[in-house]
Each structure stands twice: as structure tokens, then as C-alpha cells.
Amino acid sequence: GSGGGEKTAHELGVPLLGAIPLEMPVREGGDAGVPIVISDPNSASALELTAIAQRIAGKVSVFALT
């Protein structure tokens, strides 16, 4: 379905960091041990995963300063 991540984030009171399109190559790459960010770095899923990683890194760096 859709909206589950938003609903859960809201219920837990945490920010939603992103939503990854579940393209078939994401599942296939996971099964094969080849992440989508390696096999197809320009796909919608890879771009969103990269953006999420950047947001997490930004949040972690803020906590490291405190």
C-alpha cells in the first residue's frame, strides 16, 4: 500500500526521512546482494535511498556536535 511510512512516523512522533519506490530491481538486487545504488544509481529508488542517507548523515552530524 501507500502512506504506511507516514502513518507510522506520525504515530511514533518521528520525522519521515523518505519513501523508497519499490521497483522490482530493488528486490532483485537485494536478493542478489547488489544494492540498487550500485546497479542502477540513477533509478528513482537509488536516488531516494541516497537522499535518505544524506538526511540521516545531516541529523547524525548535528547530534555529534552536542
Rank of each mutant, 00 (worst) to 15 (best):
G29Q: 11
A44Y: 02
T8F: 11
L17M: 15
P15G: 11
I38W: 12
I20N: 01
A19P: 00
D40Q: 14
R55W: 08
G58L: 01
V26G: 05
L12N: 03
I38E: 14
K7W: 04
L17Y: 15
L47R: 14
V37G: 07
T50E: 11
A53P: 02
P21K: 05
E11W: 01
G13P: 12
F63W: 03
G18D: 12
E48A: 14
V60Y: 05
V60D: 05
N42S: 12
P25D: 02
L65I: 06
V14E: 11
P35F: 06
G18W: 05
S39Q: 15
L22G: 08
L47N: 09
G13C: 06
S43A: 13
K59N: 10
G30E: 10
F63P: 00
I56F: 09
A32G: 02
E48H: 04
E48S: 05
I52L: 03
S43Q: 04
G5R: 06
N42F: 09
A57Y: 01
H10M: 08
T50P: 00
S45K: 02
R55C: 03
H10A: 15
T66N: 04
G13H: 13
L47H: 00
I38P: 02
E11C: 02
L22Q: 13
T50F: 00
L47S: 07
G5F: 11
L49S: 02
I38Q: 12
A44W: 04
N42P: 00
V60M: 08
V34E: 12
S39G: 15
S43W: 05
S61F: 08
E23N: 05
L12D: 01
R55K: 15
K59G: 13
S45G: 07
E6H: 13
V37M: 13
L49C: 12
S45A: 15
V26Q: 05
L49K: 00
A9H: 11
P21V: 04
I52N: 03
V14F: 14
V14A: 15
S61I: 09
V37E: 13
A9K: 10
P15D: 14
P35Q: 10
A44M: 07
A46P: 04
T50I: 07
G33P: 11
F63C: 04
V34Y: 08
V26H: 06
P41W: 11
Q54M: 05
P15W: 09
V60K: 11
L47E: 12
L65S: 13
L17C: 07
A53E: 03
R55Y: 07
E28D: 09
G33Q: 04
L16M: 15
L47K: 15
L16N: 15
Q54T: 06
G33H: 10
I20A: 00
I20Y: 03
D31W: 04
T8P: 00
I52M: 09
I38A: 14
P25A: 10
P25Y: 10
D31M: 10
A46E: 09
A19D: 12
G13W: 10
P35H: 13
E28K: 14
A53R: 04
P15K: 09
L16H: 13
G29W: 06
L12H: 07
M24R: 08
T50K: 05
A64R: 10
P41E: 08
A51V: 01
